[in-house]
Structure formats: C-alpha cells, structure tokens
Design a protein around this nucleic acid. Structure first.
Lengths: 322, 322
DNA sequence: TTGTACGCGTTATCAG
DNA sequence: CTGATAACGCGTACAA
C-alpha cells in the first residue's frame, strides 16, 4: 500500500532519510527520525520484502529439506531455526516425504534466489543432483557423504558406539545385544563395525541372538521387550538404536513385571527428551551444536565471515537404566 | 548472474521478447523462441524470483503455521501442499512449538509481502492478534472459531460423534466408554455434548467409569488397555479420541491375550493410516478435502476467482474392530 | 546532516 | 509479431 516515497512525502524528507531511519543508520537528526517513525506507524508501513531482496540480492530465507521428521530431526531443526533467527534469517521447511520433485522445488528456489541457502537434513535425490546446485548458494548437509563439494556436519558414530558399549562392559554386562536402525544406513554400518571390534577386543563369544535391524520406534522397543521375555537364554543388556526404542523396551518390561536394570540393562542413543524423562542411560549427541555448525557454515559463506565451528563430541550420559 | 538483458542482447532481441518466451506468451515466432530458449539454457539462466515478486506484487509463497505435528496435521499439510503446487504456489512451514514470537514472524512475513497467504492450522496467539493481520492477505484456519473475519474449514464434530456412537449402539454395545482428547478443546466439548444427547436418547445408565481426557497418543491407548484389563466391571466398547489411541489399545489388548472385538469393541476417529493398517472401525474425516477447501478459499481471494468448495461429510468406516 | 538520481531484474503498456 | 519505455519499491553513490 504505502511505500517509502509516500512516507518521505508526508514527513517532508527524502526517501534516503526514511531508508536511513528504517535501517538504523547514523547521521539522522533526532527530530527528523522521530517524525519519520511517527508517520511510519501512523500509516502502518512496512518495507516491501521483495524490493529489499531484489536490491540486496538476498532474501534472508534458508530452506531445510527433510524427508520425514523424527524427534532428533526436530531438535536439529529447532536449534537451527533458533540461531538463524538471531542472525535475521527465516526458515522454510520442505517436507518431501521422499518425493524427488518436491526436493527439486526447494533446489529451484535456491537457483532463482528465493532462498539464500539450503540445509539437506535428509535427502532423497542423488548427491550429484544436489551438488549441481551448490553453485547457486551454500548447501550444507547433516548426512555423511563422500562429496567434497557439500560440507557436512555429520558425526561419525563409530567412536560413540564404542563409548556406549565399553560402558556396558565396564558395568559387568557380558551378553550384550545390539539393536540397529536403518539397515542400509552408514550409521548402522559404523555401529556394526564398532561392535565387531569390541567383540574381538574382549574375545566375546557369539551368543547366537538374531539380528535386530530397522528398529526405530517406541513400538519396536515394545516388541523387542516381548522377544526378550520369551527367551530362555536372554541378553543381559540391550544397546538400542535410539532412545525411542529404549523407551519402548523399558516401559514394556516394567509393565510386564521386570526390573531395569535389575533383570536387564538398557541403553539408548541420542539423548532426546524421552531419555531424560525415563532416566535412560544414553549417548549424548550434540545435535544442537551440529545445527549451529550447519548455520555457521552457511553464514560464513554468505557473509564472508569466519565464525569458528563448535568442536563436536559424543558424551556418555549415565542414568539409571544400566 | 545472467539477467534477462544479457539474454536479450545475446539473442539479438528485446527483453520484452525474452520475457514473452519465458512466460509462454503467444505472438513470438518459432525461430526466435527457439533461439532465445537456446541461449537461456546455454547460460543456465533463471528469472530472479525477487524481481518477479516485486513486479507482480506476489511471491507465490503460502505459509502454514502449526504448533506441533500430528499424523492428522501432516495429512492436512500434505494435501494442501499438493493442490497449492498445482496452482504454482510453494509452501513454507512454520513450526512454532507454541512460541508466540515465531508465529509473529510468519505474520510479519505476510505483512511485508514475503508471503501471499497464511494457513493457521493450529495457532498459539489470540485470535485478535491474528485477525489484525488479515488486512495484509488471506488467512485461513483449520480451527473452529467465533471470528467472522477469518474463514475456517473446520468441521463440527457433534454429528460425527453421533454417527460413531450410534454405530456402536446398533452393534449391540451398551457400556460404551468415551475417551476424549484435549480437555480444553472445542472438539471435546462437542463430542461430550453428543455423548450426553446419546445417553439421554437411549436412557443409558451411568456406569461410573472415570473420565478419560487428554488422551491422544499410542501410549495413551496402551495405558487405557491396561486400565481396562484391571477392571472387573468393564466397558464393552471404547470410543477412542483418535486412531492412535485406538491403535495403542487394540495392540496392547491383543498382546495381553484379549480379543478385539470379541472381548471389547474399539472405535477410532479420523481414519488415518494406522486405522487402515490395523483394520479399525473409525470415522473418516475428509482432511484432504478440508485442506483443498483451505486452499480454494485462499485462491479465490487472491485471484478473485470463484472456485467451488467441496462439501464436507463425515463417514463411518466400518472395519473389524467393532 | 540531508537530498538527487540511478539501478536491482522483471513485466505491462503502448506503439509500431 | 516485435520493441521502447515506464513502473514495481528500495538502497546507496555522490553531491551538497
């Protein structure tokens, strides 16, 4: 409706002056500033975002691409949004549900400069497709990748898994069952490698337990508990793929009259809300710091700045479930 | 990088012509069109979105505000995104987590014309605050409201609840326990009214069951099942607040050796994915159509068009849990 | 401390 | 069928 010229006219000053007031520039006399602000609020004026973007060549809008949403992802997104907003960026979330087209929509928005940057928190398209878009703006990811072009804030989970399993061992557990998440994922691969190295190091015999894979939900945890109860030869500890699975297992076991950690030790992963709630031992993965790093990476490229990245470290959170 | 003038120069035509090619206008000779397109792809050119928005006065970006995400909300958002994209709109999702400030961010983006419209799928601020923003663009909501200013695609659940409970009655159930969702919500109020009218109509005695409220999750359903098992005087049917609760109840009951509907009838609400999966009787609420209506409302105001709204109707989906 | 005038990249109007 | 030219609304050299 009203534009900057209208304000200038009514205030009897130039558009430059209005612009200066708007952007908090110095060298505007107090009285003029006051008058301009007065008119602005009278006319309920806001600068037009498109005009600003056009002039500045940036929209202060960052897209986040996520195939689906887990509690952990939500943590990441929230932390990212938080810091981004501190720097004056807004976030727009693209939930692709695995639809390649929807992902391209976001990529194209980067290309046409409707987005300043993009975070691929989980992607569906091939990396090559995404790499091709890096020339249009910063793209950062949270997945592990081979690509040299797209920076990642991913953390290798090998070390984290060692941390967890050594803890279980030190607590006296000797028949540990590992529950894994996505069977095709790199995380699972790293975790398995860690477990294998552990087995070798301590010369652990094979207990012949079945492979548990693709377990990620509370319900999976409950089913796991059911399985455990049905066994005669039971594991003495369950190292769960994440806190949700651990939570499901713990509650179901207690519901059925078993004691944790009395009858079996249970350990989660990620240190999400629910781990805190149920007092689960878990591995803290610094999602919020990873998110901040993702933003810092972007901000550094956008503003040619040189903010320092947080150094990331997994931490064992010992609570009462082991 | 490259702009429309660069393309025009290289193709030896005017920017007007390039623009025409870009926007699929008629009256461009085939040969010129071909040459222009050739150059465009050579230079990997895309029109600048901000410039377009500035000129057109619209960004083709619609915001969706949601406090949190449930499966039902996701359905709504997906359906909305679907139809919006068909009309050339992109969606940006604001997850506010109940943070009033974050909601204001979205509202302000509407005001500064970075957003063409807004859907409040669940709001945190007071309606008056939101109403004040309707002058900047269409705002539609999915919540029931008193406001005359903000259109809503909400459906009154009284009739739906009657539908469900009459079904249970017709199936011979006489000791029906109603489980409710958010105790403060209007939906719950309507459902209770429906239940009260039902009780009166058939002269049902009070069975003295406790009030179950604020039950919305699978876990709530499982706990409900636990409660049911512990009773000596049990309800013969559970009318759950949604499909998740029903799902939790059914699986837990079956796990503990009870038969559904043999021992107890269970009915869900919403007809989400999980109801289909577990073969639950439920009430189908046409979320996708509501979402489309939300979009149609917006599109009609934006384009002064007059698309017809879908008429909405709840439907009983009888499956094997009753 | 303030103002003039131009450009950001597009599209619409009008004239040919 | 094609092209000049004027906006859209803002920020910023440059000049005063």
């Amino acid at each position: 409706m009203a534009n900057i010229q209208e304000i200038a006219r009514r205030a009897g000053v130039s558009t430059t002056t209005v612009s200066r007031v708007l952007n908090g520039h110095p060298y505007v006399s107090g009285s003029i500033r006051a008058r301009v602000l007065e008119i602005i609020s009278q006319l309920d004026y806001v600068p037009n975002a498109s005009a600003r973007s056009l002039k500045k060549g940036s929209t202060r809008l960052i897209g986040i691409i996520a195939v689906s949403l887990s509690p952990l992802l939500l943590n990441f997104i929230q932390a990212f949004t938080e810091i981004a907003q501190q720097y004056g960026f807004n976030i727009t979330l693209f939930m692709t549900n695995g639809d390649l087209e929807k992902e391209l929509v976001a990529l194209e928005m980067l290309r046409s400069k409707q987005l300043d940057a993009l975070v691929c928190v989980l992607r569906a398209n091939d990396w090559e497709v995404i790499e091709a878009y890096t020339k249009y703006g910063p793209i950062v990811t949270w997945q592990r990748l081979q690509s040299e072009i797209i920076p990642s804030v991913f953390m290798d989970q090998y070390q984290a898994y060692i941390l967890g399993i050594e803890h279980l061992y030190s607590k006296g557990y000797r028949k540990i069952l590992s529950i894994y998440a996505m069977s095709k994922g790199l995380n699972t691969k790293e975790r398995k490698r860690a477990y294998a190295d552990f087995v070798e190091k301590y010369n652990i015999p094979d207990h012949g337990f079945p492979q548990f894979q693709d377990k990620t939900s509370v319900q999976d945890g409950e089913e796991l508990a059911g399985w455990w109860i049905a066994q005669t030869d039971r594991p003495d500890a369950l190292f769960c793929s994440n806190d949700e699975v651990a939570a499901g297992a713990v509650t179901e076991l207690r519901r059925r009259g078993f004691a944790v950690p009395g009858d079996v030790g249970i350990m989660g992963f990620d240190n999400t809300e629910v781990a805190h709630l149920l007092d689960l031992t878990t591995i803290h993965s610094p999602v919020d710091l990873q998110a901040e790093n993702a933003f810092i990476l972007i901000q550094n490229r956008l503003a040619q700045s040189d903010l320092e990245l947080h150094s990331l470290e997994y931490r064992l959170i010992e609570r009462s479930s082991t």
